[in-house]
Nucleic acid binder design. Structure first.
Lengths: 345, 345
DNA sequence: GATGACAACGAAAACGATTTATCAAATCCC
DNA sequence: GGGATTTGATAAATCGTTTTCGTTGTCATC
């Protein structure tokens, strides 16, 4: 068995030219049916595998997608939310015959810029997964190119944005606690990102729509996933003279921080206080009481991102219109939100 | 600004041949210092980026590593343990100028086999991350090749195996509970994998070394991450006439399953029962009581895997010797293991 | 002044495909 | 039958590098 079989070898055996073999393998229609069949048979017998470098060097189509994870530590693969999206994205594009390559984000001094890497490897498109600094020079350079790009949770005038329905989801969450009688609702929200913006707006709108006052001392900022800060802020809320009946957290992890803090203070959840998280990552179901949360549909987000990107790649003739794909989340009730009886309200 | 600058363009501008430009860019020594400098300057000015396809087509060195994740659902990126290893591996190889591409594991009918994909994309090496079926035809074909391969937690006579020190780690865990007075120790262990083997052996050896009886009814099999099964088995253990004082679980998730089951039965941990998990994934620190666990050093595993693989790729002259790299884990105490006073023992 | 060593460069052949231009033969259309 | 079209195949150009090999020119050595 020869080391590596090329089109030339097959051509020699079948007594045809290399170009005919190429056409036969690519199932073009200007080669007769019997020849096509014979060539493909021989190729199979010789274990022919095409050469990616050669074919893409010439054709420019790589069927390879660059994935840009955040360079921030603690996010990326280590963040379950994003890992889930990536996993779903991966399944989607692999099913459609595409390959995924990570864009190098190391601090190595001779690493190419994101844009250069895309040129270097000839990515057909790029998937920007998680909250990087969108104002960095490298990102701006990348976004300025005319490469097909899909971004998660970031509005970009030129690109496709697959985003959770933060506004709508947050309203759903508000509705959920409202229906259980809660009126005094504190909201420890995330940092000042686009993501947080939508949720915060939903909170305020909901309160207004239901003629509820928005107390400044019910609103706090806490970085996502900052367990310690979440604990500290929880204590601050508990110390308020006009204590709320429910605290909403920026994500599930911080919510558990609040839960633990309150339990250590001798409180019982949800009897003494209701809480809710956000995201719906896996441990909410194993913590007791289960954390009520707004489950983001990471599976759908990955699928949408993958399909939109590939469609954009494969049908460039349909004029490229930037687009925001909104994916709805789902309420995932846990025991951490209790019912307030009407006489207390 | 021209669309894509090639060596030819630079050659024209500098009045030299393409080969000289190539040599200058690759810092070869058969080109004069001043020419080299000029060429590199012009290349920089034109924003020259080499073409990966062309260069690897000719040179065969891709600096690209294929990563094979398990095709089993629920593992891979969604499994924090493996995600951590991959993340650390990624950082390591990116730092050294390598790129990572996923091997397509979809069920798409026209996907190439793992081996074919490696030939197709000319991977310099392969990283096999998590427990696939090592007897499948595809894996066997891949392992039979002479591609540099690093495998996690799987003994393969031909390849480099980076493995947790399951035997030693489990002994550490046993020692930990033993020192806290536990003698009647039940062990709900994982399925019959190589990984489990080592731990189970350590359990038995430890018991023998300390002249403790090994009761058959203290040993159960539970698939990893099977929360429900963990709960059921916990109930079985609790029903034993000769109840143990401590239960060890195959992993942290199943341990929490046990924890919840016992708490629901009105028991208090660790007063009424001690428990310990395994792995050290992130939520052990936010569950109350904290789960005592054996933290596997996923960071080190990823680093070792990356460096061993690249060394194997870059120095093929040192005769390829298969090797097992053993990585020690670390005890991570939580409140879930209590102290048994000597009069009870 | 012949010889060899060495440095600096270029021409050209790969690498393995795709694509274009071309062409002969076959078919079709009045 | 003559011209137009279609079909099936090929040769050659091309993609952008790397690498081999050969050609200079220079300089030290004997």
């Amino acid at each position: 068995m020869k080391e590596n079989v090329s089109l030339k070898d097959i051509a020699r055996i079948c007594n045809v030219s290399v170009s005919t073999v190429s056409k036969a393998m690519n199932d073009r229609n200007d080669v007769s049916a019997d020849k096509k069949e014979e060539i493909q048979r021989v190729a199979r017998e010789l274990n022919y595998v095409p050469n990616y470098m050669a074919s893409t060097l010439r054709s420019k189509r790589t069927r390879n997608i660059g994935v840009l994870l955040s360079e921030k530590t603690g996010t990326g693969l280590l963040h379950e939310h994003f890992a889930r999206i990536l996993n779903s994205f991966k399944e989607t594009v692999e099913e459609r015959g595409y390959t995924i390559t990570f864009i190098n984000i190391s601090n190595s001094p001779n690493r190419l810029s994101y844009m250069e890497q895309c040129k270097y490897m000839n990515f057909d498109g790029v998937f920007v997964l998680c909250g990087t600094d969108y104002n960095s020079h490298e990102i701006r350079e990348l976004f300025a190119s005319d490469l097909p790009i899909v971004v998660i949770d970031h509005q970009s005038p030129k690109h496709i944005n697959v985003a959770s329905n933060h506004y709508g989801d947050m309203k759903r969450l508000m509705q959920f606690v409202y229906e259980r009688g809660h009126r005094k609702i504190a909201y420890i929200h995330g940092g000042m990102s686009e993501v947080t913006q939508g949720r915060l707006e939903a909170y305020k709108d909901f309160m207004k729509e239901h003629q509820l006052p928005i107390y400044k001392e019910y609103l706090y900022t806490c970085p996502y996933r900052d367990y310690e800060r979440g604990s500290a802020l929880t204590k601050a809320v508990l110390a308020l003279p006009n204590r709320p009946t429910c605290i909403l957290y920026p994500d599930d992890l911080v919510a558990v921080g609040g839960l633990n803090t309150m339990q250590e203070a001798g409180m019982s959840i949800p009897k003494d206080m209701s809480i809710a998280g956000y995201d719906g990552i896996s441990f909410v179901n194993i913590v007791r009481p289960r954390i009520t949360t707004l489950h983001q549909d990471t599976v759908s987000m990955g699928i949408q991102a993958g399909n939109k990107l590939i469609n954009r790649i494969e049908f460039p003739e349909e004029k490229y219109k930037p687009e925001t794909v909104v994916v709805d989340g789902m309420m995932e009730p846990g025991e951490s939100v209790g019912v307030i009886s009407s006489r207390n309200s």
